[in-house]
Design a protein around this nucleic acid. Structure first.
Lengths: 235, 235
DNA sequence: CGAATTCAAACAGTATACACTATAGACTTA
DNA sequence: TAAGTCTATAGTGTATACTGTTTGAATTCG
């Protein structure tokens, strides 16, 4: 199986950073199927560069939890139900506070971007376009997270949100769930517009909670094989 | 200036992991002076291995925030007052909850280890032995964090706590501050012994708060040059 | 026909070599 | 003597080559 994914170098800085950005975007967009295998030498050949920068990028992604390294290439991690619950716990602790910050610091530009993302999400939900919904969801989050002045806080949130997002691809394709998500986004957006930090805090709390419940409910039938596949990761 | 620090390979796994552990321990113990410069090729020569594993380890540490990469070697990051405040904000959000978990899950062995660490801290405080106090403090934290079942939560905490610990070397050498810290540790320890999750939560909240206040108060005179040295980090 | 054993390909880990760039410090000049 | 400029060098970034280990598949044996 050859690489079905087209990698091309993007953006700034050294090769490692470019490759890192590229692969991370690919993962964030859900363009990497769970069984898919990433091999440094293949990607390097495709980009016309040597293994080392690609390898560095892949290892960084492994360390951030975006990938797991096996003895034969790198693949997406298979999160157990416990893993997802753990991630949601951290998000529950961090995101409400971050949202409260954003309510204070979001400027007019940011609010406009949020409004656009919200509209896109609504349109995608009614049209049943999972990919667009996915993307609008990420855009919304990235926008308000960008307004959070505590970079460590926002980056930690972004990382963990990305991890579950990969798994949530199926959940987010579910129409009723999309409706719940959109409602939550709108509630949060309105708190932002009113610059109401308390409301933003509360609504974000509720949002995360309902997102988790939705996920757990929907993934129960398929079992998401908990104890079957323990943590993973080598060395 | 040659390397005043002796690196030797330790522990398990591949060379990168060994070197990583070694350097991280060195940093955690405060054995790296702020101006100190780490150069991959030097460390590699000292260990009798090639640059690559050392380089990988250093880059990982940079990515985790333990070091910053400059064009001439790697050094400790110089945290501004804002940086420290940001880190403490995240810790305030995460640690109380984690402590509540630990109150449930700590076993007899863990409690014994905590008691030992607490005693060591008290002894070091009365003796005025900053290094031992430092170490006992870390041992205490690592122990209860180890009992937290949510690995992502505990690892995130450990990382951020380490970051400020490096800066807090001076603060923790201050006798009155040591007394405050020891009192907080004892209060938390007692909550653990009673398996009182609520008390653990509350006391950890108070502990973090007082630690932050202590730090901010003590570092005010030296200014800790805020706007002077912005974020740092290259590429 | 199924299970154990062997073998070779695949891929990560490590080593070495070269290229490129940013800085420290010398050197110049006012 | 202080400010600007220039250059040698230190040290990262990237490339290539080699090594070791895992694993999947072929092959043999029960």
């Amino acid at each position: 199986m050859a690489e079905p994914i087209e990698f091309k170098r993007i953006g700034e800085g050294n090769l490692r950073a470019q490759v890192y950005q590229q692969i991370r975007q690919t993962i964030q967009r859900g363009e990497l199927s769970p069984g898919q295998k990433l091999v440094d030498v293949d990607i390097a050949a495709q980009l016309g560069i040597s293994r080392m920068p690609v390898r560095d990028a892949l290892m960084q992604l492994v360390h951030e939890g975006y990938l797991v390294g096996t003895t034969r290439g790198f693949t997406l991690p298979t999160l157990t139900a416990t893993d997802v619950a753990d991630i949601f716990e951290v998000r529950r602790l961090l995101e409400p506070r971050a949202a409260a910050h954003a309510a204070r610091t979001l400027d007019a530009d940011g609010l406009k971007t949020l409004a656009a993302a919200l509209q896109a999400a609504e349109a995608a939900a009614t049209a049943g376009d999972a990919a667009r919904f996915f993307q609008a969801n990420s855009a919304f989050r990235n926008c308000w997270l960008g307004a959070v002045e505590n970079d460590r806080l926002s980056q930690t949130i972004a990382r963990f949100a990305d991890h579950v997002l990969v798994v949530r691809l199926k959940t987010l394709s579910h129409q009723p769930t999309q409706a719940v998500i959109v409602a939550g986004m709108r509630a949060i957006y309105e708190a932002f517009v009113k610059r109401d930090a308390v409301a933003a805090y509360d609504r974000m709390t509720h949002f995360i909670q309902s997102a988790e419940e939705r996920f757990m409910k929907l993934s129960q039938p398929q079992q998401l094989n908990d104890e079957a596949a323990p943590h993973q990761g080598k060395s």
